[in-house]
Design a protein around this nucleic acid. Sequence first.
RNA 1: GGCCCCUUAGCCAAGCGGUAAGGCAGUGGAUUGCAAAUCCGCCAUCCCCGGUUCGAAUCCGGGAGGGGCCUCCA
Length: 484
Amino acid sequence: MLRVYNTLTKQKELFQTVEPGKVTMYVCGPTVYKPSHIGHMVGPVIFDTVKRYLVRLGYQVRWVVNITDVDDKLIRRAAELNTTVKELAEKMTTDYVENLTKLNVTGIDAMPRATEHIQGMIDIMQGLIAKGYAYAASGDVYFDVMKDADYGKLCNRDPEQLEAGARIEVSDRKRSPGDFALWKSAKPGEPAWDSPWGKGRPGWHIECSAMSMSLLGKTLDIHGGGLDLQFPHHENELAQSESFTGETFSRYWMHNGLLKIGQSKMAGSVGNVVNVVDLLQKYSPETVRFLLLATHYRSPIEYSDERLAEVQKSLEGFYRFFERYERITKKSFFAITASTNVASPSEFATLRQSFLNHMDDDFNTGGAVGVLFELLSALNRFVDVSQLESGNGKPVDVATFEQGVGYLKELTDILGLFAKQIETPQTDEKSQQILSGLMQLLIDLRAEARKAKNFSLGDQIRKRLAEIGVTLEDRPTGTIWRKE
RNA sequence: GGCCCCUUAGCCAAGCGGUAAGGCAGUGGAUUGCAAAUCCGCCAUCCCCGGUUCGAAUCCGGGAGGGGCCUCCA
């Protein structure tokens, strides 16, 4: 049974959806004014994995991630770059989507833009005003936190005390400091839309209410986002949505931990961001995704170059195993279909179950990843013990082995890892032929030297190759070579 | 000042009352002509102090240190 930690209740709850068998999930996306940094990828990778697991459990999942394409930062940045808000937003959205694709985030069903839902926002605001939860003032519209009896329930905020900590310019149009803008009257030169209160643009929180209701209905099963969005964004979204519909806005609130670089979080405001595009120059998408999933999603993730290098190193064992699998079965790991049914009890099946148990416990990918390494060891051990690589393996053992590898495929699929062969820099075919020909030539010459007990020559060949980044491995079936 | 959260080996990290997963690094061994790869073994009593309990890394209280939010932020 799947249990999910709910920020609203601060405990793990049994997962039960509004509609049996179906899950609606809304995750707050970025404001597209700058190229995305790795921090922006944490949520998408995690919730992509959440979706994969839910699908694996048999749910039909519909997942929406919004794009905020109008806001102060966007307006400012567009002015700096001497471009339009629209153009800037489109460009940065493209960047965002490309990065998601590279990280194998494939589960998003819709990415609505705030500016496409202005009418929906106006409808909600009118409803809120009619019910007395919001008021218009000089072209602005504000939500009245004092009118909302349970305002602050998500983050334990007391609207009475918001005043104390209110460091913001408390607009005199507001009735109380905690009130937040649903609609902002237009200033000259800013993007603006017509509304019953005059020309203006939406406040930050209202867009998510409008988009989620329009695409997923009044009550979401899961609402997700970064920990930093809990307050005020999610608190306000919740307040305005429930005040408007009178119904529960989201059954489960899930918040992911922030990426930590050194002692503080990575954020545009701190100025310590690493762009995804730059990062992927140095490390594979697989490495990045693995890093993000190796820690429990509610904890901060330790980010550093050393950490990335460490993760990359730990992944090499998997890639070597995939090659080993190919040597034994003549099949590519990436092409096999996952075993999902447990035919007979085995060590592999036990580990598989352990992995699934971790996922059932609030999507504990950290624990699950640990099991992956155990499964890897178990499979390698099995190959050794059953002598599968020497070609003397019994058919029964080969079958058991293939099932175990099928599990590995199944589980890595859930995490969205090892979906395809790692990409290597393209070289033309002719060069490729020459390279493999030369390598074979060297391996053959070395084999002859070793046969003649001329080990010093053999070792010299190996040493010189190592110096240029080529490793030789002498295996029962012959010598193979590998870059790096 | 208010509201959350964290503190597990050199580093990263799981653990949610029954006696410390996993990875990286290190180290001993099997294998190898020697290596590489693989396998096996070793490597922590869980920030401190009290308490609850037959039993606590896990629960409660206090202390120390760190982080997040209260302003834009994934």
